[in-house]
């Protein structure tokens, strides 16, 4: 299957054929994925300049696509994201690869589970987390056509099948005992882990803005206002927004994601890290059982 990154590159190159506003800024990573083009700029291993140059392109009237590995796009030049895009009030399309731990053999330096939480400290950003390569093309096309600030989080992890890309949450399954929200690549694992439990499963590719109305509606349809958030990045990243959405409803909220309390200092595979963070089927199923009761008890 074509990777999310390849779909991203193919889509950007296709749009560049007819939209002269679109320019790409790279910092070595993915330099060979893009064909040489007069509006593809590789700045070398200079991530502050990567984001600053993207801002300058936007100020000159272009639509910049700024792309590299997640920690070097979001964490190292974070002040450039805050000031050169946000404070200047210009738009741009920031696209990362690597996810939270796509390549754990590279260790902590190449992991960015805190990226979405960092964007949460800044106003005015849309954050989209596709869960399948086929969802990447509509996300990138819409992003290139706009003028806003958007962060697209690509990963090697994905679900078996795509879902239509919409702004809000998609109801994948309806149940009575509560609501599980699965973000991007977490969907298949969530569906497997909750298959014997009578819960609604919502699927999110757009996490900012957070679909508060969609969550409220799903909670109102269920018998209990119990919500489990399952995100592929730092645990609880969206918990404050889920809590805010349910401020008028007595509710229970639990969040699963990459653990905040420990640096693992372990290599291995992405699946090993899923297990360590209780983000595999076993870990999520255990959390589902604790929150919603065993399927036999519910029946």
């Amino acid at each position: 299957m074509t990777s999310m990154r390849q779909v991203f590159v193919d889509t950007v190159e296709d749009v560049m054929r007819y939209d002269p506003r679109v320019a790409v800024v790279l910092a070595e990573i993915s330099r060979d994925a893009f064909a040489p083009h007069e509006r593809v700029f590789n700045v070398g291993i200079r991530e502050q300049a990567l984001v600053g140059v993207g801002s300058g392109l936007a100020l000159s009237g272009m639509r910049p696509v700024v792309h590299t590995y997640a920690p070097f796009l979001v964490e190292r030049p974070f002040e450039q994201i805050k000031l050169d895009f946000g404070h200047q009030d210009v738009g741009g399309v920031l696209v990362s690869i690597g996810g939270s731990y796509d390549d754990p053999a590279w260790g902590r330096t190449h992991q960015a589970p805190g990226d979405v939480a960092l964007f949460d400290t800044l106003p005015g950003w849309t954050v989209r987390v596709p869960g399948h390569p086929a969802e990447v093309e509509p996300i990138i096309r819409a992003a290139l056509a706009g003028d806003d600030r958007i962060y697209v989080r690509l990963s090697l992890r994905h679900n078996a099948a795509p879902h239509p890309v919409i702004e809000g949450f998609t109801e994948v399954r309806r149940g009575r005992q509560g609501v599980v929200v699965a973000v991007g690549p977490m969907l298949d694992t969530v569906l497997e882990a909750s298959r014997d439990v009578d819960v609604t499963v919502l699927y999110a590719t757009t996490v900012r803005p957070f679909d508060a109305a969609g969550l409220q509606a799903a909670v109102h349809r269920a018998d209990q206002a119990d919500v489990l958030l399952v995100e592929p990045y730092l645990e609880g990243t969206s918990a404050h927004l889920a809590a805010e959405a349910l401020a008028d409803v007595p509710h229970r909220l639990r969040s699963l994601g990459v653990r905040r309390d420990a640096e693992l200092r372990a290599y291995g595979t992405a699946e090993d890290h899923d297990s360590a963070h209780d983000l595999d089927v076993l870990g999520i199923a255990a959390a589902v059982r604790r929150m919603f009761g065993h399927s036999a008890a519910a029946a």
Binding site: S55, S60, M62
Partner: peptide, 14 residues
């Protein structure tokens, strides 16, 4: 200065 480089690149590209 990094923003200026991007601005100059963008003007040149246009």
């Amino acid at each position: 200065l990094p923003i200026a480089v991007g601005n100059a690149l963008g003007l040149r590209a246009q």
